[in-house]
Design a protein around this nucleic acid. Structure first.
Length: 576
RNA sequence: GUCCCCGUAGCUUAACGGAUAAAGCAACGGUCUUCUAAACCGUAGAGUGCUGGUUCGAUUCCAGCCGGGGACGCCA
């Protein structure tokens, strides 16, 4: 199904081409949803843009374009006669009959009007990427939720998506973990809470390394032994990875986040030395101050910022692993787009990776999808080591607890057995929506009340709209059957039908600029319009075609809400 | 010092270069004998950090400044 803006834009293009002096083929003539209902439903600023280039009066040019539009039979089917307003806007108002037909057609479309990508890509998305041996905290939320949402949306649009969790399972911290394991492990605690014990021994070793040079040397020695393949240390490392992954799997299951692969940094270990050798051989990398570096003399911004791919002590690092990962994603997985949902502090790193990839002959676009920082009360970025930041599990627990309290208070009739599950859905939804509904580049200070709000522009508001619809269908006592015809009369019906048709535009917009908040915003508006419809238009008390139409609008709204929320990774309850 | 991101009502946020800057929270006042009041309606509240520039049109693009966050060779 072709989205409405595309249909209108095509008509506009035909009109432009019919002008005595048509604009060039690359002149873009987009049609967008009107900023204000008073201006109709859709608007085009092509006349103003074209008039600017030609230095003519925009309103006069708009008049010429509208004259051509009037002769367009296809447009006449969709829109009333376009009008000219303001400095030269061309405004379209959809015909109720057209909107009714579209609403009816959407009921038969499993994609709810969202067009499939014309050119399907193989997108490899790198997100979440926590470090092993540390519990996930609220700072991990952004990458995890944004990445998961982008993966869901890209998949829905028809792209092949490979979600990869690039676990930090092979770093300097393992020297400390192993040192701690050998010197201060408490087996009883390990049995009781494996991950907590790993964190504890890490912290003990870390503190020791900071104060006692002998302990610091010990940590380094354990790391060196691990990296050289010492069986005992490798065994301890494996056990740590197993413990951590069990914990991570639980939290991802709870979040409903899915990965196709979870290849940690360690996976690429065997490839690092050969890769560096090849890069030296090809003249891409060279020695500098004892380290092996890739220089970027052609890039002014990176001219003095080489990427170090082998440290002076012979060890490899982050950049080396990322380049090896890149090879796998492009050569073995056939990735045609690589997306990295990683915090803004790593911007320089990814510029280097991008530049290095080009020198290696990799042409696949690499996009670093940055996001703002989650700050602590001190307005400083939340870091894993600072300790006082909130564990992700605690946040989710608190979300469910608060949701459960509200359910008990407001919905005492909800069966006891359903309450825990409903609290889970609502609590988790609130947390996810709080994150996904805001612009990804905004920094924000973590606050419980912000993450756990259940009123206003929140997930429960959208879930409540869905629940109200489900309630109507429960009371109607009959399965929904799509009517022969949809007949739109009331303003609230028309408004809802228009908003439903815009789902088709909202979903692709998420991918265009990696902005889940655009979809969240659309779903909020849809819910808002629905609540207005709900107040104005009784469904079950109406009769005949009106009742059929209203039931159809309810059903479609429910489908769009369920689908849209699912793209955000948010579930819907049947009751709340 | 160089570079990157951010700066919008009291608070939290929204707005492909477009029309009178849009919501939520908090405040105040109304709506449950009528499909779930986690809802709806109404009142009040900013002219988008500052100064310039480009444009018919700037919250959006450009320059400088101020404020906040971050990055800048052997952490990841």
């Amino acid at each position: 199904m072709v989205p409405l803006p595309s249909l209108l834009s095509a008509a506009l293009r035909r009109a432009l081409d019919a002008l005595p002096e048509p604009p060039p083929a690359d002149f873009s003539a987009p049609v967008t949803a009107a900023a204000d209902p008073r201006f109709g439903d859709y608007q085009a600023n092509a006349a103003m843009a074209l008039a600017k280039a030609r230095k003519v009066n925009p309103r006069a040019l708009a008049g010429e374009i509208v004259e051509k539009l009037k002769g367009d039979a296809e447009l006449a089917r969709i829109s009333a006669e376009p009008t000219i307003a303001g400095p030269g806007f061309i405004n379209f108002t959809l015909k109720p009959e057209f909107l009714a037909a579209r609403t009816r057609a959407l009921l038969d479309d499993t994609k709810l009007g969202v067009p499939t990508a014309e050119k399907p890509e193989t997108v490899v998305i790198d997100f979440s990427s926590p470090n092993i041996a540390k519990p996930m905290h609220v700072g991990h939320l952004r990458s995890t939720l944004i990445g998961d949402c982008l993966a869901r949306v890209a998949r829905f649009l028809g792209h092949k998506v490979i979600a990869d969790n690039h676990l930090g399972d092979w770093g300097t911290q393992f020297g400390k973990v192993i040192y701690g394991w050998k010197n201060s492990l408490d087996r009883t605690r390990l049995a009781a809470g494996p991950l907590a014990e790993l964190v504890r021994i890490y912290q003990v070793a870390n503190t020791a390394a900071e104060t006692d040079p002998a302990a610091a040397d010990g940590c380094r020695a354990e790391l060196a032994k691990l990296q050289s393949g010492d069986p005992e240390n490798v065994g301890i490392w494996r056990e740590c990875v197993r413990i951590s992954c069990e914990d991570l799997d639980r939290i991802y299951a709870r979040l409903g986040v899915h990965f196709d692969f979870q290849l940690g940094e360690s996976h690429f270990n065997p490839r690092l030395a050969p890769l560096v050798g090849e890069l030296i051989g090809k003249g891409i990398a060279r020695e500098s101050d004892g380290a092996i570096c890739i220089f970027f003399p052609d890039n002014p911004k990176l001219a003095e910022k080489p990427a170090i791919i082998r440290k002076r002590d012979g060890a490899f690092n982050y950049a080396t692993t990322d380049l090896a990962t890149l090879e796998l994603r492009v050569n073995d997985w056939g990735g045609t787009k690589l997306w990295y949902v990683v915090g803004a502090p790593q911007a320089l790193h990814f510029e280097q990776i991008n530049a290095a990839a080009r020198q290696m002959g990799i042409r696949v676009p690499i996009t670093h999808i940055t996001f703002g920082s989650i700050l602590g009360e001190d307005r400083k970025i939340m870091r894993t080591r600072s300790g006082e930041n909130v564990a992700l599990r605690d946040l989710l627990d608190e979300a469910e607890t608060r949701a459960a309290a509200i359910i008990t208070e407001r919905s005492p009739d909800l069966p006891e057995g359903d309450r825990a599950e409903t609290a889970r859905i609502i609590g988790l939804g609130a947390v996810k929506y709080a994150e996904l509904s805001q612009h990804r580049l905004t920094d924000y200070v973590f606050a419980w009340d912000r993450m756990l709000s259940f009123q206003g522009n929140t997930a429960p508001y959208l879930q409540n709209a869905y629940v109200r619809i489900r309630s109507i269908f429960r009371r109607s006592g009959a399965e929904f059957r799509a009517p022969e015809r949809v007949v739109l009369q009331e303003p609230a019906e028309l408004a809802l039908a228009k908003k439903l048709a815009q789902f088709a535009e909202s979903v692709p917009a998420v991918i265009d600029d990696f902005r889940p908040n655009l979809l969240a915003h659309y779903l909020y508006e849809l819910s808002d319009v629905f609540h207005g419809f709900y107040e104005a238009c009784p469904v079950l008390k109406s009769e005949g075609a009106t009742r059929d139409t209203r039931l159809a609008l309810c059903e479609l709204t429910a489908r769009v809400l369920r689908t849209g929320l699912d793209l955000l990774g948010i579930a819907v309850p049947e009751r709340m």
